[in-house]
C-alpha cells in the first residue's frame, strides 16, 4: 500500500506527480503573485531575490559532480545476480500508476500496427522489429515493486522478452557500456550494461496478462527491478547499444543518472 497525499489534480484520475512537477513553474508563478499580495514572508523574499543556491551554476556543477561520483558508487555496489523480491499476483495493483513528465491526458498513443522497434549502435542485426515479431519471443513475467524517486511505490506484474536474451539474439556487444532508449515525445533514457543484463530486466509488452495500456508505455517499455521508476523508459522507439555516455531526459534536469535501487 502506498500512502496518498492530497493532490492538486482532480481526484477522478490517477495522481501524477511528475505532471505536478512539470506544472510547478506555472503554480509558482501564481504563488509568487499571491505572496506579493500577502505579507512579506521569508519565502516571498527567497522567491523575489531568487536566492536558492542550488540553482547557481557553480553549485549545480559541484552537486552534479557528486551525483556522478554517486553513479560510480552505485555501479560498484550493484550485485549483478542479486534478485529483487517478487510478489504474488494477488498483490498486483491494477491499473499501474502513471508516471511521466507530463499529464496522463497528454499521452500520444502509438499505433502498434505501424510501430517498429529500431536498433542502432553496437548491434550486428539491426533489422527493425514489429510488435508481432516481438510477441513471438519467449516471455518472462516479473511481479516486482516499482519505486518512484518521489517516495511512492506499488507492485506491478510485467511480462515480455528478457532484455539480455533479446540483446544476445540481435548480436549486441554485451561488453559495451550503455543501452540507450529513444522514446516517443523526445524522451530518452539509458542504463548501464550490467543492469541491462540483470535477470530481472525485460522489454515489457504486457501488464497483468494484457497488452500494456497506452499511458503505461504501449507497445513496448523497459521494466527492470533494479532502477527507480523514471529509468523504465516507456513507448520505446529505438534501442541503441553504445560506449558513449549521453545525458538523458531526467539527468539533464539534474536527476541522478544511475538511479539504482
Amino acid at each position: 500500500m502506498f500512502i496518498r497525499k492530497p493532490s492538486i489534480l482532480p481526484p477522478d484520475k490517477p495522481v501524477d506527480r511528475d505532471a505536478i512537477r512539470q506544472s510547478r513553474a506555472v503554480l509558482e508563478h501564481f504563488n509568487r503573485r499571491k505572496l506579493l499580495r500577502g505579507a512579506l514572508s521569508l519565502s516571498a523574499l527567497t522567491l523575489l531575490t531568487g536566492c536558492d543556491v542550488s540553482e547557481e551554476d557553480s553549485v549545480q556543477k559541484a552537486l552534479r559532480a557528486v551525483s556522478s561520483w554517486n553513479d560510480g558508487v552505485q555501479a560498484a555496489i550493484f550485485r549483478s545476480d542479486h534478485l529483487a523480491p517478487t510478489f504474488s499476483p494477488s498483490q498486483v495493483v491494477k491499473p499501474p500508476r502513471f508516471n511521466a513528465y507530463y499529464d496522463i491526458d497528454h499521452v500520444k498513443p502509438i499505433d502498434g500496427a505501424t510501430w517498429k522497434l529500431e536498433l542502432a549502435g553496437l548491434i550486428k542485426d539491426k533489422r527493425p522489429w514489429t510488435a508481432q515479431q516481438i510477441y513471438q519471443l519467449p516471455e518472462q513475467e516479473l511481479i516486482i515493486r516499482h519505486i518512484c524517486v518521489e517516495g511512492w511505490d506499488y507492485i506491478g506484474q510485467w511480462s515480455g522478452p528478457n532484455l539480455r536474451a533479446f540483446l544476445t539474439r540481435v548480436g549486441a556487444d554485451l561488453t559495451a557500456k550503455y543501452v540507450y532508449f529513444i522514446c516517443n515525445d523526445n524522451f530518452t533514457e539509458s542504463i548501464d550494461m550490467a543492469s541491462a543484463l540483470h535477470p530481472q530486466t525485460i522489454l515489457a509488452t504486457k501488464y497483468a496478462g494484457d497488452f500494456i495500456a497506452d499511458p503505461f508505455g504501449y507497445p513496448l517499455r523497459l521494466r527492470t527491478s533494479t532502477k527507480l521508476g523514471y529509468k523504465n523508459a516507456k513507448w520505446i522507439k529505438a534501442v541503441e547499444v553504445t560506449n558513449t555516455f549521453r545525458e538523458t531526459f531526467w539527468s539533464k534536469q539534474g536527476e541522478n543518472w544511475f538511479a539504482g535501487i
Partner: peptide
C-alpha cells in the same frame, strides 16, 4: 532545493 532533484542532489 527549489526542485525535488535539487533536494535529492
Amino acid at each position: 532545493g527549489k526542485w525535488a532533484q535539487y533536494g535529492l542532489q
